[in-house]
């Protein structure tokens, strides 16, 4: 039964738009799926390989801008950004990896945080290339209907899920976890830690960037403040995985459902809405204290708590 769960969920997700959801509902679903992709990507690097990145906006933004600049400078459809961004992101990941992956633990995290900010400031200031803070606007969107966008992001998500699962179940997965648990031990067991950390970073960057390229096409407008945002992209990425469950297959998916719905809910609250960052912060603290392994990782614990509650 458990083996078929991914197919079952994919099937249900594929039928959903056909039952006539409102445009708003469809938008929420698209955001949920997009964040699942980013979460799965981050989870591969941060959750399994233990390299906690605070700068995934660097990859999201570059993916988004690849699509945007193709459209704006060369006049080709921004959809070409989806395949092309793969190449550009690998190059970017190699460069960032070369700089950051020699650092460990908190130093890696800080270095990636800095890289994300460097990318944002660069994008703001290369005005001839990126339009700076004006951003890039797609003059016409490919479809007015959201259904096709939904299917495209669903496809990207399905591919990401399969890629992450295959990688984690292979030799690479064992190496990633070994590196997370003890880099020195892994190295002494014949694991080329630099190489495998770079591989994890590349896969993670590509998947994140694909979501970015999709974002440009879907939203039709990007600017550096949005796609390279530290708080709205890099931090939310970490939260999605932390809330859902680090180093679990379904954690990022569950996390993105909760985070997107919660964000929508909090924003709709009168007065409190503008404080949604604060509320997210509090939520993160609560999660880290009570469910350090996230909702999926600590599910047995959640069941126990509620089971206990019923009995008493």
């Amino acid at each position: 039964m458990k083996r078929y769960a991914p197919y079952l969920i994919l099937g249900i997700m594929a039928i959903l738009p056909l039952i006539g959801l409102s445009t708003y509902m469809l938008h929420i679903l698209i955001m949920v799926i997009m964040w699942s992709v980013i979460g799965m990507a981050w989870n591969l690097l941060g959750g399994y390989c233990g390299q906690v990145s605070f700068g995934h906006a660097a990859f999201f933004g570059v993916g988004a801008y690849t699509a945007g600049i193709l459209y704006y400078k060369l006049g080709v459809s921004a959809w070409w950004g989806v395949p092309l961004s793969v190449l550009i992101l690998v190059v970017e990941a190699l460069i960032i990896g070369f700089i950051c992956l020699r650092l460990r633990g908190p130093f890696f995290a800080l270095a990636t945080l800095a890289m994300g900010e460097v990318m944002r400031v660069t994008a703001e200031n290369l005005r001839d290339f990126t339009q700076g803070s004006l951003g890039i606007m797609l003059k016409e969107r490919t479809w007015v209907e959201k259904t096709w966008y939904y299917y495209i992001i669903l496809l990207i998500a399905a591919v990401s899920f399969v890629v992450v699962k295959k990688v984690i179940e292979s030799r690479l997965g064992y190496y990633f976890v070994a590196i997370r648990e003890d880099q020195d031990a892994a190295e002494s067991l014949g694991i080329n830690t630099t190489l495998y950390k770079t591989i994890a970073l590349c896969i993670s960057a590509v998947l994140t960037g694909l979501a970015g390229a999709f974002y440009t096409n879907y939203m039709g407008y990007i600017d550096p403040e949005v796609v390279f945002a530290l708080h709205d992209i890099s931090i939310v990425t970490i939260m999605v995985v932390m809330v859902g469950g680090v180093a679990t297959f379904w954690g990022p998916v569950v996390g993105s459902v909760i985070m997107v719905l919660l964000a929508e809910f909090i924003r709709s609250l009168p007065r409190l809405g503008s404080a949604h960052q604060t509320l997210f912060g509090i939520l993160l603290i609560v999660i880290i204290i009570f469910l350090p392994n996230g909702i999926v990782g600590d599910f047995p614990k959640i069941k126990r708590i509620f089971g206990f509650g019923r009995r008493s």
């Binding site: 976890v177 648990e181 003890d182 031990a185």
Partner: peptide, 11 residues
């Protein structure tokens, strides 16, 4: 092997 053992703890 290591004097201070380094098992991959969560494996």
């Amino acid at each position: 092997t290591f004097q201070v053992v380094k098992p991959l703890q969560r494996m």
